[in-house]
Amino acid sequence: MKQTIFTIQENKQLTETTWRMKLKGDTSEIISAGQFVNIKLDGYFLRRPISVCDVEGDILTIIYKILGRGTEEMTHFHIGKELDILTGLGNGYDLSLSGDRPVLIGGGVGIPPLYLAAKRLIAEGRNVKAVLGYNTVDEIYYEEEFREIGCEVIIATADGSVGVKGFVTDALQTIAGEDCGYTYFYTCGPEPMLKAVYNATKTSGQLSFEERMGCGFGACMGCSCKTVTGYKRICKEGPVLRKEEVIW
């Protein structure tokens, strides 16, 4: 973990409620895809935990959704503004277990951390599929970005406005071949989706969980959960859990 000042380079609206921010600063502590940063906002007591979407050199990319007043205020931040950020938080995905043909399954605001995972898996020569779920066509973002780095992308929308009608688990069925079509899965999204993915997947995999956090670095025990391998803090031993250790 490191506490550093980042400078906003870009703050761009992607959909009605989803924004992308690029920040320049010391990214050295960000090791794994699936880690998060914790951002201090003026006028709010607790920091805002937001997952890392991408990191390239000293540029950190995050994608955030307007969920409350804090994230709404973030949309008004201008280029050049400085933010106090804790970086390198959480365990992140272990990409070494992916096998040759991993599938990435993301829902809504859970999609961003899978982007860095996809980039790194492709760099290692894996054949990567991404199943991305949204409520409706207007909420789609990053479909092109996943394609540009060499992912095969399957879209699911709950209202059927584009792609497979239904949830990510419905789209997952479309890639199933004789051997289910993938060697391993990485997923992130709302908890009901994670549970559905857990039940629908036929291989091992890793799930990234969300919880209301106090500190984000393991001090307060605010975000604990029970797992097969004992009590874990979502912010420290998580947010990524192996499928085999999850207790619902």
Binding site: Y44, F45, L46, E211, R212, M213, G214, C220, M221, G222, C223, S224, C225, K226, Y231
Partner: peptide
């Protein structure tokens, strides 16, 4: 002790609530 169920944290102006 595991403590209470989550959510255990809520924010408020100039502070937070915890029920760890």
């Amino acid at each position: 002790r595991f403590g209470n169920d989550t959510p255990r944290i809520a924010e408020c102006p100039s502070g937070l609530l915890n029920s760890v």
